[in-house]
Nucleic acid binder design. Structure first.
Length: 574
RNA sequence: GCGCUCAUAGCUCAACGGAUAGAGCACUUGACUACGGAUCAAGAGGUUGCAGGUUCGAAUCCUGCUGAGCGCACCA
C-alpha cells in the first residue's frame, strides 16, 4: 500500500499534466489548513500563464479524488486543500496493522552503500569527538539496511604512520604483557601520553622511535607483531565502547589505514598514467578542482611525500577507489566532521577526474558540527582535555539510574539497571540526532534526561505507557481487524500522524537529516498523549475500543521502530 | 587572502520557495475518585544578525556587510 502523499500525488500529477500539458510535480505535503495541500498551481503560472485559482479548479475537476477525500477545496491564491475521509484513514491503518514494516515497503532498487564512520585512532582514547560520527553513522546503517540496501560498514581506524614508532618503542619499554594489560583495561590515554612524553623529552627514545617507523613500514616481522598487539588491544577496547553505546560496529568492520597499504603504489601509478600526477616541492601531488592555499597557489592532495612515504592523501584515494571498484558501491557516505569538508571534496574531485567516481555512483560528505559545553565552546574537561567517551556514557547512565530510582522505586534492581542503560544512552544519542547535524549543539545532561520536551526519555515513556495499557487490560494487540473507526478529532490527528511515517522515512534516507525523524517521533508521541487524554481506550466498547487499541498498538510500534532506527532502545516498562 | 559552516522567542531547537514563522524548557493560568499526572489544555513571548535584490510569495534563493566557529602542503 502506497502512502497517502504518494497516492494523492499520483492522482494530482496526472490531472495537473492533463491541464498543463507538461510534467508537473504536484507538491503534496501536510497542511495546517487541511490534511494535505497541493501547491503546484502557483508555480505553474510562470510556465504556462493563466490564473492559478482557475488552474487549480481545472485540476480538481479532472482528478479522481472522491474515493480518498471527503473534501477538496481551493483556497487562497490557488492552494488545493485535501481532506482525507475517515473511512480511508481507517482502512489504511488496518492495512498497516498486520505488517511488520508498518506499511513501509523496501526500496525497489537496492544499492550497495558504504558508510565510513566512527574512525578512532588506535592506541588513543575514544573521546567526544568520535561520538557524533559513531551515532550518526550507526543511524544511517540502521535506516538504510532497513530500507533494503546492502550496507557496508567501514570503520577507518587510524593505525598506521609515524606515531606508531614511538608507541611500539614504549610498548617494548614497559613489556608486552603490561602494555596489553594497560590497553585492554582502556587506559589508552595513559599509554599514549607516556610514549609522547618520552618522545618529547628523550633524544635517544626519539631516535629509536624514528628507526622503528622505518622498520614498521619496511615490513619487519617483529615490529609488525608488536604493532599488531597495539592495534588488536585497541580494537578490543573500541568494541567494548561500541557495546556500551549499542552501535552495530564489530570486528569485521575495521578497515584501517593499513588495509590499503598494498594499494597505495598502484593508486600512485594509476594517477600518473592518467596524467593527473605532478611533482611539487619534492612531493607527488594531484591538484583537483581549483582549490587554493593561503598563498593563492593551487592546493594539492599529496599522494607521495617528499621522503617517499605515503600519507593520508594516498590512503583516502585508495579507499575511495576500493569502494567503487571492488565493493561496487554506488553511494559512498563519509560521516566526518565539517572541518574535513574541503579535503573530502578534493578526494571526490580527484576520484571523478580519475574516472573512478561516475554516475550513478556518488560520494556524500555527511558532515556534522561539534559538541559544545555549557560555555559554548568545544566540550572539554575542567583540565582542558577532551572528555573520554566512556566517562561521558557512564555519567549519563548513572544520572538516568538516579532519575528512574526516584520516579519508579518499585522497579527491581536488574530492571532498573537495564532501563537506566536504555534511557541514559538513548538520551545521549537522541540529543545528538534530534538537532540538525550541521550545527554545533550544547551537551546538557539535565536537558537530555528530562522526561519533558523533545527527549529520548519522553518518547520511551510514551511507549512504555502504551505497553502498560495492554498489560493492565491483560490483552494482546489484535492485528487482524478489518478497519478502524476514526471519528474523534484526536483519533483523526493520530491517524494522519501514523500514516506519515513512510514518507518521512524515505526523505530521511535521502538527506540523512535524522533530526527530522526525531521530530516526527516527538510529534507522534505528543499527538498520542493528547489522544489518550481525550479518548478513553479501555473504557470504550466494541469497535471503538478495538480501534483505539489498534491506534495504541500502531503508535507503540511506530515509536519503537523509529527509535530503533535511531539506535535507541525502548523498554517495555520504566 | 581564499574557502566552508552557522546566526530564528529569555534559553535549547524546528520550519521540501508557500497561507497567521512553530515546539520544548522557563514563566502565567486551568484540569486529578488517575486506562502510569513521568500528563494534558490554554496564555504570554518574534523587525528570522544588517542592507539590498529575484519572485505572485523569502527565515529559506542571489549579492554585499557584521558577528561566531573552522579549514587551507608532506598530521588525519
Amino acid at each position: 500500500m502506497a502512502n497517502l502523499e504518494e497516492l494523492l500525488g499520483q492522482r494530482l500529477k496526472s490531472a495537473f499534466e492533463a491541464v498543463a500539458g507538461t510534467s508537473v510535480d504536484p507538491l503534496v505535503r501536510r497542511s495546517q489548513h487541511a490534511h494535505f495541500q497541493s501547491d503546484a498551481a502557483l508555480p505553474l503560472v510562470r510556465k504556462i500563464g493563466g490564473n492559478p485559482r482557475e488552474i487549480a479548479a481545472q485540476v480538481v475537476a479532472k482528478a479522481k479524488l472522491d474515493d480518498l477525500c471527503s473534501s477538496v477545496e481551493i483556497s487562497g491564491p490557488g492552494f488545493i486543500n485535501l481532506t482525507i475521509s475517515d473511512d480511508v484513514l481507517g482502512q489504511l491503518l488496518a492495512d498497516t496493522l498486520d505488517d511488520d514494516r508498518l506499511g513501509v515497503s523496501q526500496v525497489e532498487a537496492p544499492e550497495t552503500i558504504t558508510i565510513d564512520y566512527s574512525a578512532p585512532n588506535a592506541a588513543k582514547e575514544m573521546h567526544v569527538g568520535h561520538l557524533r560520527s559513531t551515532i550518526i553513522g550507526d543511524a544511517a546503517v540502521r535506516l538504510l539496511e532497513w530500507q533494503g540496501h546492502t550496507v557496508i560498514r567501514q570503520n577507518h581506524i587510524g593505525e598506521w604512520g609515524t606515531p606508531f614508532g614511538m608507541l611500539v618503542e614504549h610498548l617494548l619499554d614497559i613489556g608486552e604483557s603490561e602494555a596489553a594489560h594497560e590497553l585492554s583495561v582502556g587506559d589508552l590515554n595513559g599509554f599514549y601520553r607516556a610514549a609522547r612524553t618520552k618522545f618529547d623529552a628523550d633524544e635517544t627514545f626519539k631516535d629509536r622511535a624514528r628507526k622503528r617507523v622505518v622498520l614498521l613500514q619496511s615490513g619487519d616481522e617483529t615490529t609488525l607483531r608488536l604493532w599488531r598487539t597495539l592495534v588488536d588491544e585497541s580494537k578490543k577496547y573500541f568494541l567494548t565502547v561500541y557495546s556500551t553505546l549499542g552501535v552495530r560496529l564489530n570486528e569485521d568492520d575495521f578497515f584501517g589505514e593499513s588495509y590499503y597499504n598494498d594499494q597505495l603504489q598502484s593508486v600512485l601509478d594509476e594517477l600518473d598514467e592518467l596524467g593527473l600526477l605532478r611533482d611539487s616541492e619534492g612531493a607527488k601531488c594531484v591538484f583537483p578542482g581549483d582549490y587554493l592555499n593561503r598563498n593563492g597557489d593551487p592546493l594539492p592532495i599529496i599522494v607521495q611525500k617528499g621522503d617517499g612515504g605515503f600519507g593520508y592523501g594516498a590512503t583516502d584515494l585508495a579507499t575511495i577507489r576500493h569502494r567503487l571498484r571492488n565493493l561496487h558501491a554506488t553511494r559512498l557516505l563519509y560521516v566526518v566532521g565539517l572541518p574535513q569538508h574541503q579535503h573530502l571534496e578534493m578526494v571526490y574531485e580527484t576520484a571523478r577526474e580519475a574516472g573512478w567516481l561516475a554516475p550513478p555512483a556518488r560520494a556524500e560528505h555527511i558532515g556534522h558540527g561539534s559538541i559544545l559545553g555549557s560555555d559554548g565552546k568545544m566540550l572539554r574537561t575542567r583540565a582542558g582535555i577532551s572528555v573520554k567517551l566512556v566517562d561521558l556514557l557512564e555519567e549519563a547512565i548513572i544520572r538516568a539510574s538516579a532519575v528512574i530510582a526516584e520516579k519508579n522505586p518499585e522497579l527491581d534492581e536488574e530492571t532498573r539497571a537495564a532501563v537506566a542503560r536504555a534511557v541514559g544512552i538513548g538520551a545521549v544519542k537522541y540529543s545528538d540526532l534530534s538537532t540538525d547535524r550541521l550545527k554545533d549543539y550544547v551537551f546538557d545532561y539535565d536537558r537530555m534526561l528530562s522526561f519533558e520536551g523533545n527527549t529520548a526519555p519522553y518518547l520511551q515513556y510514551a511507549r512504555a505507557r502504551i505497553c502498560s495499557i495492554f498489560r493492565r487490560a491483560g490483552i494482546a494487540p489484535d492485528r487482524t481487524i478489518d478497519t478502524l473507526v476514526i471519528a474523534e478529532p484526536a483519533e483523526r490527528a493520530l491517524a494522519l500522524e501514523l500514516l506519515g511515517f513512510g514518507t518521512l522515512i524515505s526523505e530521511v534516507a535521502e538527506n540523512l537529516e535524522f533530526h527530522r525523524l526525531a521530530h516526527y517521533l516527538y510529534g507522534l508521541a505528543s499527538t498520542f498523549t493528547s489522544f489518550y487524554e481525550k479518548c478513553h481506550v479501555l473504557r470504550a466498547e466494541g469497535d471503538i475500543r478495538q480501534s483505539r487499541l489498534a491506534l495504541c498498538d500502531l503508535t507503540a510500534r511506530t515509536l519503537a521502530l523509529g527509535l530503533e532506527l535511531l539506535g535507541i532502545d525502548a523498554p517495555n516498562q520504566m
